Simulated scan of single mutants.
Amino acid sequence: MRGPERAGAEMSELAGVELPGLPAAGPLYRRAAIGLAPRLGPGRRPDRLPEAGLLVRGVAVDRDHLAAYDRVCGFRLADALPPTYPHVLAFPLALRLMSGPDFPLPLVGLVHVANRITTYRRVDASEPLDLAVRAVDLRPHDRGRQFDVVCTASVGAEVVWCGVSTYLRRERTAAKGARRDSGDRPAAPAPTAMWRVPARVGRDYARVSGDHNPIHTSRIAARLFGFPRPIAHGMWSKARCLAALEGRLPEAYTVDVAFKSPVSLPGTVAFSAAPGRTFGLHDLATRRPHLTATLGPVRQE
């Protein structure tokens, strides 16, 4: 089993391209959203992810930004970073990677279907972080193709946090009939709490996360992608659930989430948590799950 120190050495080996600072997420996303991101580059192959990742060293946490993130997601104001906060710090790097000319899939249309986070220890806002991202494991799916974006946060040679986001690109496939029957869905658990999610959550989370995908903020854009109303960011939903469990989580753990269906804004969701192992969100009226999650011991990526 690898330790965080060895993972840190591997991160440096695999990062590939070191940038002088974090790129601005807004321009990258806006360029991709209006179709100006390059569709074909000299190193681009439709069946291969770029081998090189991206790395930025010495990223300092802005405490004002951290406090704004805490408020939007429901965490207590503290110097300890919430488990989902490094994902936000690394998001501009992931966006830069996925919008590059050698990336095989267009950024627009990718669906975030799962996220796994491992926290190796408490991370304090005073600790500068080295952030690295890489894309791995492009593979077929019954609805298209999917891949993982692996993000790590390190303090010196020690990896203190790791996140793995799985993205799906919907494409026509020959695997018809392989999709699950939604009628086989298990019964939703009894709710632990009910939350009203206001429409402003989409705009507020976009502001603190840098994820300005208009399906979260614009009714017109949401309809273009098949949603009757804007939808909440999946990582906001995960963060809100973990905020509800604050004080009951161990210092080191892995939390694995599958995003099942979007939360329409505004809306009301039911949160359920079983002692120690699982939690989730589901729709009050239809009982349809929005996300399901498991908590477990540290997993070495």
Rank of each mutant, 00 (worst) to 15 (best):
L36V: 05
G276W: 11
R196Y: 02
T268A: 10
R277L: 11
R30S: 09
M98E: 00
A67E: 13
S154C: 13
G226R: 02
M1Q: 11
V150S: 03
R196V: 01
R196K: 10
P228M: 02
D64K: 09
D256I: 10
G183F: 11
R196Q: 10
R223S: 01
P20L: 05
M1C: 13
G234Y: 06
L22V: 01
A9M: 14
L14H: 13
V255F: 07
V56Q: 01
E158F: 03
G41H: 05
A37E: 14
R223L: 09
G16H: 05
I34V: 14
T119Q: 15
C162D: 07
P46L: 11
R185I: 06
R240G: 00
S165E: 05
L89W: 00
P42W: 09
T292G: 12
M11K: 00
D47W: 14
T217I: 05
F75D: 06
V298E: 13
V111K: 07
F75E: 01
A252S: 14
G267R: 04
P92I: 03
P266M: 04
T254G: 03
Y167K: 01
V208E: 10
V88P: 01
T217Q: 02
A222K: 03
E251W: 08
E51T: 10
R6T: 14
L107Y: 14
T119R: 15
A293M: 10
L265D: 05
F259N: 01
G100Q: 06
V197C: 01
F75I: 01
D181V: 06
R240F: 01
A94M: 00
A178Q: 13
P266F: 00
L224Y: 06
G234N: 10
V164K: 08
A190F: 08
W161V: 06
P186F: 05
G226T: 01
A178I: 07
K260A: 13
T173H: 13
C151A: 15
P23C: 07
A293S: 14
A135T: 03
L95G: 09
R44Y: 06
S154W: 03
Y167W: 14
S182L: 14
V133H: 04
R45N: 12
A60W: 06
E10D: 13
P189S: 11
C73W: 05
P186W: 00
A285R: 14
D124E: 13
R196T: 09
N213S: 12
S165C: 11
V160G: 04
S126H: 15
